[in-house]
Nucleic acid binder design. Structure first.
Lengths: 234, 234
DNA sequence: GGCTCATGTTAAAGCCATTCACATGAGCTG
DNA sequence: CAGCTCATGTGAATGGCTTTAACATGAGCC
Protein backbone atom coordinates (compact mmCIF):
# COMPACT_ATOMS: atom_id res chain seq x y z
CA UNK A 1 0.00 0.00 0.00
CA UNK A 2 2.92 2.32 0.41
CA UNK A 3 5.27 2.64 -2.49
CA UNK A 4 8.68 4.05 -2.06
CA UNK A 5 9.58 7.24 -3.72
CA UNK A 6 11.19 6.01 -6.90
CA UNK A 7 13.23 7.89 -9.42
CA UNK A 8 10.26 8.94 -11.48
CA UNK A 9 8.50 11.09 -8.98
CA UNK A 10 6.28 8.45 -7.46
CA UNK A 11 5.59 8.96 -3.87
CA UNK A 12 5.05 7.06 -0.68
CA UNK A 13 2.40 7.52 1.89
CA UNK A 14 3.56 11.03 2.41
CA UNK A 15 3.55 13.35 -0.51
CA UNK A 16 6.46 15.46 0.51
CA UNK A 17 5.34 18.74 -0.93
CA UNK A 18 1.61 18.60 -0.98
CA UNK A 19 0.94 22.21 -0.15
CA UNK A 20 2.83 23.43 -3.16
CA UNK A 21 1.35 20.71 -5.35
CA UNK A 22 -2.14 21.74 -4.33
CA UNK A 23 -1.48 25.36 -5.11
CA UNK A 24 -0.18 24.44 -8.54
CA UNK A 25 -3.05 22.08 -9.20
CA UNK A 26 -5.59 24.67 -8.15
CA UNK A 27 -3.94 27.26 -10.32
CA UNK A 28 -4.27 25.04 -13.34
CA UNK A 29 -7.85 24.16 -12.57
CA UNK A 30 -8.83 27.76 -12.02
CA UNK A 31 -7.25 28.70 -15.31
CA UNK A 32 -9.34 26.01 -16.95
CA UNK A 33 -12.68 26.44 -15.32
CA UNK A 34 -12.65 29.69 -13.45
CA UNK A 35 -12.53 30.20 -9.69
CA UNK A 36 -16.11 29.04 -9.36
CA UNK A 37 -15.62 25.82 -11.25
CA UNK A 38 -12.59 24.80 -9.28
CA UNK A 39 -13.17 22.24 -6.58
CA UNK A 40 -11.12 21.28 -3.61
CA UNK A 41 -11.61 17.62 -4.39
CA UNK A 42 -10.40 18.10 -7.90
CA UNK A 43 -7.23 19.76 -6.73
CA UNK A 44 -6.60 16.85 -4.38
CA UNK A 45 -7.20 14.39 -7.20
CA UNK A 46 -4.82 16.25 -9.48
CA UNK A 47 -2.19 16.19 -6.78
CA UNK A 48 -2.77 12.50 -6.35
CA UNK A 49 -4.01 12.48 -2.78
CA UNK A 50 -7.30 11.76 -1.10
CA UNK A 51 -9.99 14.38 -0.78
CA UNK A 52 -9.28 14.90 2.88
CA UNK A 53 -5.56 15.48 2.58
CA UNK A 54 -5.77 19.17 1.62
CA UNK A 55 -7.27 19.93 5.00
CA UNK A 56 -3.88 19.31 6.55
CA UNK A 57 -2.61 22.38 4.69
CA UNK A 58 -5.59 24.67 4.19
CA UNK A 59 -8.42 25.40 6.55
CA UNK A 60 -10.92 25.05 3.75
CA UNK A 61 -11.45 25.77 0.11
CA UNK A 62 -11.53 29.51 0.63
CA UNK A 63 -8.26 29.38 2.45
CA UNK A 64 -6.63 27.80 -0.58
CA UNK A 65 -8.19 30.42 -2.79
CA UNK A 66 -6.93 33.17 -0.54
CA UNK A 67 -3.44 31.71 -0.65
CA UNK A 68 -3.54 31.75 -4.41
CA UNK A 69 -4.79 35.30 -4.43
CA UNK A 70 -1.98 36.29 -2.12
CA UNK A 71 0.59 34.62 -4.29
CA UNK A 72 -1.03 36.33 -7.24
CA UNK A 73 -0.60 39.74 -5.66
CA UNK A 74 3.02 38.96 -4.99
CA UNK A 75 3.57 38.04 -8.62
CA UNK A 76 1.61 41.08 -9.62
CA UNK A 77 3.86 43.29 -7.57
CA UNK A 78 6.92 41.83 -9.24
CA UNK A 79 5.46 42.30 -12.69
CA UNK A 80 4.42 45.86 -12.02
CA UNK A 81 7.75 46.69 -10.46
CA UNK A 82 9.57 45.34 -13.47
CA UNK A 83 7.31 47.31 -15.79
CA UNK A 84 7.87 50.49 -13.87
CA UNK A 85 11.62 49.93 -13.92
CA UNK A 86 12.06 52.86 -11.62
CA UNK A 87 10.70 55.25 -14.18
CA UNK A 88 13.12 54.55 -16.99
CA UNK A 89 13.57 55.82 -19.61
CA UNK A 90 11.09 58.48 -18.65
CA UNK A 91 8.27 58.70 -16.22
CA UNK A 92 5.38 58.78 -18.63
CA UNK A 93 6.67 55.91 -20.72
CA UNK A 94 7.28 53.80 -17.67
CA UNK A 95 3.86 54.70 -16.36
CA UNK A 96 2.30 53.50 -19.56
CA UNK A 97 4.22 50.27 -19.24
CA UNK A 98 2.56 49.66 -15.92
CA UNK A 99 -0.79 49.79 -17.64
CA UNK A 100 0.33 47.32 -20.25
CA UNK A 101 1.70 45.07 -17.56
CA UNK A 102 -1.63 45.18 -15.79
CA UNK A 103 -3.42 43.93 -18.86
CA UNK A 104 -0.72 41.44 -19.67
CA UNK A 105 -1.01 39.97 -16.22
CA UNK A 106 -4.76 39.64 -16.49
CA UNK A 107 -4.34 37.88 -19.79
CA UNK A 108 -1.40 35.62 -19.12
CA UNK A 109 -2.32 34.77 -15.57
CA UNK A 110 -6.08 34.54 -15.64
CA UNK A 111 -6.06 32.09 -12.77
CA UNK A 112 -4.21 34.47 -10.49
CA UNK A 113 -6.22 37.39 -11.71
CA UNK A 114 -9.57 35.82 -11.08
CA UNK A 115 -8.48 34.50 -7.72
CA UNK A 116 -7.38 38.00 -6.81
CA UNK A 117 -10.38 39.92 -8.07
CA UNK A 118 -13.25 37.62 -8.89
CA UNK A 119 -13.19 34.80 -6.46
CA UNK A 120 -15.38 36.53 -3.94
CA UNK A 121 -12.89 36.21 -1.13
CA UNK A 122 -12.69 39.41 0.89
CA UNK A 123 -9.45 41.34 0.71
CA UNK A 124 -9.09 41.29 4.44
CA UNK A 125 -9.54 37.55 4.48
CA UNK A 126 -6.05 37.38 5.90
CA UNK A 127 -3.59 40.08 6.87
CA UNK A 128 -1.01 38.61 4.51
CA UNK A 129 -3.41 38.82 1.61
CA UNK A 130 -4.30 42.39 2.40
CA UNK A 131 -0.63 43.28 2.75
CA UNK A 132 0.26 41.67 -0.56
CA UNK A 133 -2.51 43.56 -2.29
CA UNK A 134 -1.36 46.74 -0.66
CA UNK A 135 2.19 46.23 -1.84
CA UNK A 136 1.07 45.64 -5.40
CA UNK A 137 -0.97 48.79 -5.36
CA UNK A 138 1.99 50.53 -3.78
CA UNK A 139 3.89 50.16 -7.02
CA UNK A 140 1.24 52.09 -8.88
CA UNK A 141 1.05 54.66 -6.13
CA UNK A 142 4.79 55.17 -6.12
CA UNK A 143 4.76 55.65 -9.86
CA UNK A 144 1.91 58.10 -9.55
CA UNK A 145 3.88 60.03 -7.00
CA UNK A 146 6.82 60.36 -9.28
CA UNK A 147 4.51 61.43 -12.03
CA UNK A 148 2.70 63.94 -9.88
CA UNK A 149 6.00 65.47 -8.93
CA UNK A 150 6.57 66.21 -12.58
CA UNK A 151 3.45 68.24 -13.00
CA UNK A 152 4.30 71.07 -15.38
CA UNK A 153 4.64 74.46 -13.79
CA UNK A 154 1.50 76.48 -13.68
CA UNK A 155 -0.71 73.46 -13.24
CA UNK A 156 -2.14 72.56 -9.87
CA UNK A 157 -0.55 69.34 -8.77
CA UNK A 158 -2.99 66.47 -8.43
CA UNK A 159 -2.91 64.21 -5.39
CA UNK A 160 -0.76 61.24 -6.29
CA UNK A 161 -3.05 58.86 -4.46
CA UNK A 162 -5.97 59.98 -6.54
CA UNK A 163 -4.02 59.56 -9.73
CA UNK A 164 -3.01 56.08 -8.68
CA UNK A 165 -6.60 55.18 -7.93
CA UNK A 166 -7.78 56.51 -11.25
CA UNK A 167 -5.23 54.60 -13.23
CA UNK A 168 -5.81 51.48 -11.23
CA UNK A 169 -9.53 51.75 -11.77
CA UNK A 170 -9.20 52.36 -15.46
CA UNK A 171 -6.79 49.49 -15.94
CA UNK A 172 -8.92 47.22 -13.82
CA UNK A 173 -12.06 48.16 -15.69
CA UNK A 174 -10.48 47.54 -19.06
CA UNK A 175 -8.99 44.27 -17.92
CA UNK A 176 -12.21 43.06 -16.33
CA UNK A 177 -14.48 44.02 -19.17
CA UNK A 178 -12.33 43.29 -22.18
CA UNK A 179 -9.06 41.84 -21.08
CA UNK A 180 -9.38 38.10 -20.91
CA UNK A 181 -8.99 35.68 -23.73
CA UNK A 182 -12.35 34.12 -24.08
CA UNK A 183 -14.70 34.60 -21.17
CA UNK A 184 -17.10 37.46 -20.91
CA UNK A 185 -15.55 39.06 -23.91
CA UNK A 186 -17.17 41.98 -25.61
CA UNK A 187 -16.30 43.10 -29.06
CA UNK A 188 -13.95 46.00 -29.25
CA UNK A 189 -12.92 48.32 -32.05
CA UNK A 190 -9.41 48.27 -30.67
CA UNK A 191 -7.19 46.13 -28.49
CA UNK A 192 -7.52 46.46 -24.72
CA UNK A 193 -3.93 47.65 -24.65
CA UNK A 194 -4.60 50.45 -27.06
CA UNK A 195 -7.81 51.30 -25.28
CA UNK A 196 -6.05 51.61 -21.98
CA UNK A 197 -3.09 53.49 -23.36
CA UNK A 198 -5.31 56.00 -25.08
CA UNK A 199 -7.37 56.46 -21.95
CA UNK A 200 -4.34 56.93 -19.77
CA UNK A 201 -2.81 59.46 -22.14
CA UNK A 202 -6.01 61.45 -22.32
CA UNK A 203 -6.20 61.35 -18.57
CA UNK A 204 -2.63 62.54 -18.17
CA UNK A 205 -3.24 65.28 -20.64
CA UNK A 206 -6.22 66.31 -18.57
CA UNK A 207 -3.83 66.71 -15.69
CA UNK A 208 -1.67 69.03 -17.70
CA UNK A 209 0.97 66.59 -18.85
CA UNK A 210 2.19 66.99 -22.36
CA UNK A 211 1.70 63.54 -23.76
CA UNK A 212 2.27 63.83 -27.43
CA UNK A 213 5.19 62.24 -29.16
CA UNK A 214 7.15 65.39 -29.61
CA UNK A 215 7.19 66.25 -26.00
CA UNK A 216 8.77 63.91 -23.64
CA UNK A 217 12.41 64.13 -23.01
CA UNK A 218 14.62 61.18 -23.55
CA UNK A 219 12.18 58.98 -25.34
CA UNK A 220 14.28 58.17 -28.36
CA UNK A 221 11.89 56.23 -30.47
CA UNK A 222 8.54 57.64 -31.27
CA UNK A 223 5.37 55.96 -32.28
CA UNK A 224 3.84 57.08 -35.54
CA UNK A 225 0.74 58.04 -33.69
CA UNK A 226 -0.41 61.58 -33.71
CA UNK A 227 -2.48 61.52 -30.58
CA UNK A 228 -3.66 59.33 -27.76
CA UNK A 229 -5.88 57.46 -30.16
CA UNK A 230 -4.10 56.32 -33.28
CA UNK A 231 -5.27 57.12 -36.70
CA UNK A 232 -8.70 55.69 -37.08
CA UNK A 233 -10.94 53.26 -35.30
CA UNK A 234 -11.35 50.02 -37.13
CA UNK B 1 -51.58 16.86 0.38
CA UNK B 2 -52.86 19.67 -1.72
CA UNK B 3 -54.14 22.74 0.03
CA UNK B 4 -56.34 25.15 -1.71
CA UNK B 5 -55.11 28.58 -2.45
CA UNK B 6 -56.42 30.57 0.50
CA UNK B 7 -56.66 34.28 0.92
CA UNK B 8 -53.22 34.70 2.36
CA UNK B 9 -51.15 33.57 -0.55
CA UNK B 10 -50.93 29.92 0.29
CA UNK B 11 -50.80 27.77 -2.71
CA UNK B 12 -51.97 24.46 -4.04
CA UNK B 13 -50.01 21.88 -5.89
CA UNK B 14 -49.23 24.44 -8.52
CA UNK B 15 -47.42 27.55 -7.52
CA UNK B 16 -48.88 29.84 -10.11
CA UNK B 17 -45.95 32.12 -10.54
CA UNK B 18 -42.94 30.07 -9.71
CA UNK B 19 -40.60 31.48 -12.29
CA UNK B 20 -40.96 34.96 -10.93
CA UNK B 21 -40.80 33.73 -7.36
CA UNK B 22 -37.55 31.92 -8.11
CA UNK B 23 -36.02 34.99 -9.66
CA UNK B 24 -36.94 37.05 -6.64
CA UNK B 25 -35.70 34.42 -4.23
CA UNK B 26 -32.42 34.10 -6.08
CA UNK B 27 -32.01 37.83 -6.12
CA UNK B 28 -32.35 37.98 -2.38
CA UNK B 29 -30.00 35.09 -1.82
CA UNK B 30 -27.36 36.53 -4.12
CA UNK B 31 -27.58 39.82 -2.30
CA UNK B 32 -26.98 37.94 0.92
CA UNK B 33 -24.29 35.52 -0.03
CA UNK B 34 -22.94 36.51 -3.40
CA UNK B 35 -23.47 34.76 -6.70
CA UNK B 36 -21.19 31.94 -5.66
CA UNK B 37 -22.95 31.26 -2.40
CA UNK B 38 -26.35 31.10 -3.94
CA UNK B 39 -27.72 27.63 -4.53
CA UNK B 40 -30.48 26.43 -6.75
CA UNK B 41 -31.92 24.31 -3.98
CA UNK B 42 -31.98 27.28 -1.65
CA UNK B 43 -33.94 29.32 -4.13
CA UNK B 44 -36.45 26.50 -4.46
CA UNK B 45 -36.74 26.25 -0.70
CA UNK B 46 -37.29 29.98 -0.37
CA UNK B 47 -40.00 29.81 -2.98
CA UNK B 48 -41.58 26.94 -1.12
CA UNK B 49 -41.23 24.24 -3.74
CA UNK B 50 -39.23 21.07 -4.08
CA UNK B 51 -35.67 21.10 -5.33
CA UNK B 52 -36.68 19.71 -8.69
CA UNK B 53 -39.35 22.28 -9.46
CA UNK B 54 -37.02 25.00 -10.74
CA UNK B 55 -36.01 22.76 -13.60
CA UNK B 56 -39.42 23.31 -15.13
CA UNK B 57 -38.48 26.96 -15.59
CA UNK B 58 -34.72 27.09 -15.95
CA UNK B 59 -32.45 24.69 -17.74
CA UNK B 60 -30.04 24.75 -14.84
CA UNK B 61 -28.52 27.00 -12.25
CA UNK B 62 -26.57 29.00 -14.78
CA UNK B 63 -29.70 29.63 -16.76
CA UNK B 64 -31.31 31.22 -13.74
CA UNK B 65 -28.22 33.29 -13.15
CA UNK B 66 -28.22 34.40 -16.76
CA UNK B 67 -31.86 35.40 -16.47
CA UNK B 68 -31.05 37.52 -13.48
CA UNK B 69 -28.13 39.09 -15.26
CA UNK B 70 -30.37 39.88 -18.20
CA UNK B 71 -32.96 41.46 -15.99
CA UNK B 72 -30.16 43.35 -14.32
CA UNK B 73 -29.00 44.80 -17.61
CA UNK B 74 -32.53 45.84 -18.37
CA UNK B 75 -32.79 47.63 -15.04
CA UNK B 76 -29.38 49.07 -15.62
CA UNK B 77 -30.43 50.45 -18.96
CA UNK B 78 -33.43 52.13 -17.36
CA UNK B 79 -31.33 53.63 -14.61
CA UNK B 80 -28.70 54.92 -16.99
CA UNK B 81 -31.30 56.30 -19.33
CA UNK B 82 -32.97 58.14 -16.50
CA UNK B 83 -29.64 59.52 -15.36
CA UNK B 84 -28.73 60.68 -18.83
CA UNK B 85 -32.13 62.35 -19.19
CA UNK B 86 -31.37 63.07 -22.77
CA UNK B 87 -28.50 65.31 -21.86
CA UNK B 88 -30.36 67.78 -19.69
CA UNK B 89 -29.59 70.30 -18.39
CA UNK B 90 -26.29 70.12 -20.25
CA UNK B 91 -24.32 67.35 -21.77
CA UNK B 92 -21.42 67.27 -19.36
CA UNK B 93 -23.60 67.38 -16.28
CA UNK B 94 -25.79 64.62 -17.62
CA UNK B 95 -22.73 62.62 -18.52
CA UNK B 96 -21.48 62.90 -15.00
CA UNK B 97 -24.85 61.72 -13.75
CA UNK B 98 -24.41 58.54 -15.72
CA UNK B 99 -21.25 57.83 -13.81
CA UNK B 100 -22.99 58.40 -10.52
CA UNK B 101 -25.83 56.17 -11.61
CA UNK B 102 -23.35 53.45 -12.45
CA UNK B 103 -21.96 53.50 -8.95
CA UNK B 104 -25.37 53.83 -7.40
CA UNK B 105 -26.55 50.77 -9.24
CA UNK B 106 -23.58 48.74 -8.13
CA UNK B 107 -24.24 49.76 -4.56
CA UNK B 108 -28.00 49.53 -4.35
CA UNK B 109 -28.36 46.45 -6.52
CA UNK B 110 -25.37 44.35 -5.61
CA UNK B 111 -27.22 41.19 -6.52
CA UNK B 112 -27.92 42.36 -10.02
CA UNK B 113 -24.48 43.81 -10.35
CA UNK B 114 -22.66 40.67 -9.34
CA UNK B 115 -24.90 38.51 -11.49
CA UNK B 116 -24.10 40.77 -14.40
CA UNK B 117 -20.39 41.11 -13.94
CA UNK B 118 -19.08 38.61 -11.45
CA UNK B 119 -21.08 35.45 -11.80
CA UNK B 120 -18.81 33.99 -14.40
CA UNK B 121 -21.56 33.46 -16.91
CA UNK B 122 -20.42 34.41 -20.41
CA UNK B 123 -22.04 37.45 -21.96
CA UNK B 124 -23.06 35.48 -24.98
CA UNK B 125 -24.67 32.89 -22.78
CA UNK B 126 -27.92 33.82 -24.46
CA UNK B 127 -28.71 36.25 -27.23
CA UNK B 128 -31.17 38.05 -24.99
CA UNK B 129 -28.52 38.57 -22.36
CA UNK B 130 -26.04 39.87 -24.87
CA UNK B 131 -28.66 42.17 -26.34
CA UNK B 132 -29.65 43.52 -22.94
CA UNK B 133 -26.02 44.24 -22.13
CA UNK B 134 -25.59 45.89 -25.46
CA UNK B 135 -28.58 48.14 -24.90
CA UNK B 136 -27.30 49.20 -21.50
CA UNK B 137 -23.94 50.06 -22.97
CA UNK B 138 -25.77 51.79 -25.78
CA UNK B 139 -26.92 54.45 -23.35
CA UNK B 140 -23.35 55.30 -22.48
CA UNK B 141 -22.35 55.21 -26.10
CA UNK B 142 -25.16 57.51 -27.12
CA UNK B 143 -24.19 59.94 -24.41
CA UNK B 144 -20.58 59.79 -25.52
CA UNK B 145 -21.67 60.53 -29.05
CA UNK B 146 -23.47 63.63 -27.96
CA UNK B 147 -20.48 64.63 -25.97
CA UNK B 148 -18.05 63.97 -28.78
CA UNK B 149 -20.13 66.13 -31.05
CA UNK B 150 -19.50 68.99 -28.69
CA UNK B 151 -15.76 68.84 -28.96
CA UNK B 152 -14.51 72.40 -28.87
CA UNK B 153 -13.31 73.76 -32.16
CA UNK B 154 -9.65 73.28 -32.86
CA UNK B 155 -9.51 69.97 -31.05
CA UNK B 156 -9.48 66.71 -32.93
CA UNK B 157 -12.72 64.95 -32.23
CA UNK B 158 -12.27 61.71 -30.33
CA UNK B 159 -14.13 58.60 -31.46
CA UNK B 160 -17.32 58.44 -29.44
CA UNK B 161 -17.07 54.70 -29.06
CA UNK B 162 -13.66 55.03 -27.52
CA UNK B 163 -14.89 57.65 -25.10
CA UNK B 164 -17.76 55.41 -24.12
CA UNK B 165 -15.43 52.51 -23.52
CA UNK B 166 -13.12 54.64 -21.42
CA UNK B 167 -15.88 55.94 -19.25
CA UNK B 168 -17.44 52.54 -18.92
CA UNK B 169 -14.10 51.04 -17.94
CA UNK B 170 -13.36 53.74 -15.43
CA UNK B 171 -16.79 53.50 -13.84
CA UNK B 172 -16.63 49.75 -13.82
CA UNK B 173 -13.19 49.74 -12.30
CA UNK B 174 -14.18 52.12 -9.53
CA UNK B 175 -17.37 50.21 -8.85
CA UNK B 176 -15.66 46.84 -8.80
CA UNK B 177 -12.73 47.87 -6.67
CA UNK B 178 -14.34 50.27 -4.25
CA UNK B 179 -18.01 50.45 -4.93
CA UNK B 180 -19.75 47.88 -2.86
CA UNK B 181 -20.86 48.20 0.69
CA UNK B 182 -18.83 45.69 2.55
CA UNK B 183 -17.17 43.02 0.45
CA UNK B 184 -13.72 43.38 -1.03
CA UNK B 185 -13.58 46.93 0.16
CA UNK B 186 -10.40 48.86 0.14
CA UNK B 187 -9.81 51.99 2.06
CA UNK B 188 -10.22 55.16 0.12
CA UNK B 189 -9.32 58.76 0.83
CA UNK B 190 -12.52 59.82 -0.91
CA UNK B 191 -15.88 58.41 -1.85
CA UNK B 192 -16.13 56.29 -4.96
CA UNK B 193 -18.48 58.88 -6.39
CA UNK B 194 -15.99 61.68 -5.96
CA UNK B 195 -13.22 59.50 -7.26
CA UNK B 196 -15.13 58.72 -10.40
CA UNK B 197 -16.30 62.24 -10.94
CA UNK B 198 -12.82 63.61 -10.60
CA UNK B 199 -11.46 61.01 -12.95
CA UNK B 200 -14.11 61.65 -15.54
CA UNK B 201 -13.57 65.38 -15.39
CA UNK B 202 -9.86 65.04 -15.80
CA UNK B 203 -10.44 62.70 -18.69
CA UNK B 204 -12.81 65.11 -20.39
CA UNK B 205 -10.39 67.90 -19.88
CA UNK B 206 -7.79 65.77 -21.56
CA UNK B 207 -10.08 65.61 -24.54
CA UNK B 208 -10.22 69.35 -24.70
CA UNK B 209 -13.45 69.96 -22.87
CA UNK B 210 -13.45 72.87 -20.53
CA UNK B 211 -14.59 71.27 -17.33
CA UNK B 212 -13.34 73.44 -14.55
CA UNK B 213 -15.30 75.42 -12.09
CA UNK B 214 -15.55 78.40 -14.34
CA UNK B 215 -17.11 76.50 -17.14
CA UNK B 216 -20.46 74.97 -16.92
CA UNK B 217 -23.52 74.87 -14.75
CA UNK B 218 -24.22 77.68 -17.12
CA UNK B 219 -27.20 76.28 -18.81
CA UNK B 220 -29.54 78.65 -17.08
CA UNK B 221 -29.54 81.54 -19.44
CA UNK B 222 -29.07 80.02 -22.82
CA UNK B 223 -31.58 77.96 -24.59
CA UNK B 224 -30.78 74.36 -23.93
CA UNK B 225 -30.30 73.56 -27.59
CA UNK B 226 -27.97 76.33 -28.64
CA UNK B 227 -24.42 77.36 -28.01
CA UNK B 228 -21.38 75.18 -27.61
CA UNK B 229 -22.84 73.21 -24.72
CA UNK B 230 -26.21 72.33 -25.99
CA UNK B 231 -26.17 71.90 -29.65
CA UNK B 232 -26.72 68.33 -30.44
CA UNK B 233 -29.15 67.44 -33.08
CA UNK B 234 -30.46 64.16 -31.97
C1' DG C 1 15.27 0.27 18.05
C1' DG C 2 11.44 2.85 19.55
C1' DC C 3 8.53 7.33 20.04
C1' DT C 4 5.91 10.91 18.30
C1' DC C 5 3.57 13.85 15.47
C1' DA C 6 2.88 15.79 11.00
C1' DT C 7 0.72 14.12 7.16
C1' DG C 8 -2.33 10.79 4.62
C1' DT C 9 -6.23 7.54 4.36
C1' DT C 10 -10.84 5.65 4.80
C1' DA C 11 -15.53 6.28 6.17
C1' DA C 12 -19.43 8.88 6.96
C1' DA C 13 -22.77 12.77 7.25
C1' DG C 14 -24.90 16.39 4.95
C1' DC C 15 -25.66 19.38 1.09
C1' DC C 16 -26.30 20.26 -3.83
C1' DA C 17 -27.32 19.55 -8.90
C1' DT C 18 -29.65 16.95 -11.93
C1' DT C 19 -32.76 13.42 -13.78
C1' DC C 20 -36.66 10.22 -14.00
C1' DA C 21 -40.99 8.34 -13.12
C1' DC C 22 -45.08 9.72 -11.39
C1' DA C 23 -48.88 12.98 -9.42
C1' DT C 24 -51.91 16.97 -9.77
C1' DG C 25 -55.04 19.94 -11.47
C1' DA C 26 -56.00 24.03 -14.89
C1' DG C 27 -57.95 24.66 -19.01
C1' DC C 28 -59.88 23.07 -23.10
C1' DT C 29 -63.29 20.18 -25.74
C1' DG C 30 -67.45 18.20 -26.45
C1' DC D 1 -70.30 18.52 -16.48
C1' DA D 2 -67.09 14.50 -17.92
C1' DG D 3 -62.94 13.59 -19.61
C1' DC D 4 -58.46 14.53 -21.66
C1' DT D 5 -54.02 16.56 -21.83
C1' DC D 6 -50.09 18.78 -20.71
C1' DA D 7 -47.64 22.17 -18.00
C1' DT D 8 -46.05 22.16 -13.56
C1' DG D 9 -44.80 19.86 -9.03
C1' DT D 10 -43.21 15.95 -6.11
C1' DG D 11 -40.16 12.04 -4.42
C1' DA D 12 -36.61 9.35 -4.89
C1' DA D 13 -32.23 8.15 -6.74
C1' DT D 14 -27.49 9.10 -8.50
C1' DG D 15 -23.23 11.03 -8.14
C1' DG D 16 -20.14 14.79 -6.59
C1' DC D 17 -18.43 18.02 -3.20
C1' DT D 18 -17.14 19.70 1.59
C1' DT D 19 -15.94 18.79 5.87
C1' DT D 20 -15.05 16.01 10.07
C1' DA D 21 -13.49 12.01 12.77
C1' DA D 22 -10.97 7.98 13.64
C1' DC D 23 -7.21 5.53 12.19
C1' DA D 24 -2.54 4.49 9.56
C1' DT D 25 2.14 5.58 8.09
C1' DG D 26 6.66 6.72 8.35
C1' DA D 27 10.28 10.69 8.90
C1' DG D 28 12.88 12.69 12.21
C1' DC D 29 14.54 12.36 16.53
C1' DC D 30 16.21 10.12 21.11
Amino acid sequence: MSWRKDSRGERGYHHGNLKEALLQAALGLIAEKGPAGFTFADAARTAGVSAAAPYRHFRDRDDLLASIAQRGFEQFELVLTAAWDDGRPNTVTAFERIGKAYLAFARTEPAFYSAMFESGIPVDSSPELAAAGERAFGVIRAAAERLAALTPPGVTRPPAMMMALHIWSLAHGVASLFGRGDAARRKLPMSPEDLLEAGALIYLRGLGFPTDQNVHKSDTTTAPKSGPWGTAPK
